[in-house]
């Protein structure tokens, strides 16, 4: 029987510094057979291991439609991420997965999509945004609201010109406080949403960001007319196994690692947010 903890060995082929504390790692499988067969959906994640230090879950930040490498964006936080940030091209790490349900791509077809991201929360949404752009005819308008504490904390800045130019796509950038030479919006994400007033008709809002942002964005979206089923979010919880076995990432009877990490607002409300 297969050891479900055995990771695939991948090599770091590139490291991008996104923000002062976030790096994006481009990873390439050592084994070609694995590379061919490895498939995933936006919103899914991998357990990334630094051998000898431990594992941590990271979502795919690039779209499966344009992949010759796997990309994970990592914020310097704890033991594993600290060790990762010390690593460089040529070093090897392990990944196992993909895990989780991913975004409901079929359900999103034919819809106007509102992407609401805060900080590193843009990572899974970038995967989905680029997936939608590559399957452009399947989706209607794409509205991207991306916020960060400061302009230095904005992720994937080289994508912005592309997104702005894409058909029926709009990008709204915001920072928490006014800065010198900043010409985009100012204010926290819920405030900005109230200003933009995105259409709620035939729309789905996809939210990812820090817990505090999610908490205040949900009521704003409801106020803007989004129904509970049309708000989906991807959650973060402490995870170890990614398999629904180690027992710590549950919300009610649902495991974020296995039944999530993508949930609709109505699902979470049904569960009374039973952390």
């Amino acid at each position: 029987m297969k050891n479900i903890y055995l990771p695939h060995v991948v090599e770091i082929v590139d490291v991008q510094e996104e923000t002062p504390d976030v790096k994006t790692f481009k990873l390439k499988f050592r084994d070609n057979v694995v590379e061919e067969s490895f498939d995933y959906r936006p919103g899914q994640f991998v357990e990334l291991s630094v051998f000898g230090e431990g594992e941590a879950p990271f979502c795919f930040s690039n779209s499966p439609t344009r992949r010759n490498v796997i990309e994970c964006s990592v914020k310097r936080m704890g033991q594993v991420t600290e060790a990762l940030h010390e690593m460089d091209t040529g070093d090897t790490v392990g990944i196992r997965g993909p895990y989780g349900n991913g975004f409901p791509l079929e359900d999103l077809k034919g819809k106007n999509l509102l992407f609401v991201a805060g900080g590193i929360g843009l990572a899974p949404l970038r995967s989905l945004i680029n997936y939608c752009l590559d399957n452009r005819k399947d989706y209607k308008t794409l509205t991207i609201v991306n916020g960060a504490r400061t302009s230095k904390d904005l992720m994937y800045r080289n994508e912005y010109p592309v997104w702005e130019k894409a058909k029926d796509t709009s990008l709204h950038l915001t920072v928490d406080c006014q800065e010198e030479n900043w010409t985009c919006m100012v204010g926290v994400v819920p405030k900005v949403l109230e200003q933009i007033k995105p259409t709620c008709g035939n729309s789905v809002a996809i939210v990812c960001g820090p817990p505090i942002m999610i908490k205040f964005t949900m009521p704003t979206l409801l106020k803007l007319g989004f129904c509970e089923d049309a708000i989906i979010t991807t959650l973060e919880m402490k995870m170890k196994c990614g398999l629904g076995q180690c027992g710590r990432c549950n919300i009610g009877h649902l495991y974020v690692c296995k039944d999530g990490p993508v949930f609709s607002y109505s699902q979470l409300k049904d569960k009374n947010f039973q952390f």
Binding site: N101, P104, A230, I232, L254
Partner: peptide, 11 residues
């Protein structure tokens, strides 16, 4: 594995 229903639907 990995064929969980869409998050929009009730799982």
């Amino acid at each position: 594995p990995n064929s969980a229903p869409g998050a929009g639907k009730k799982s």
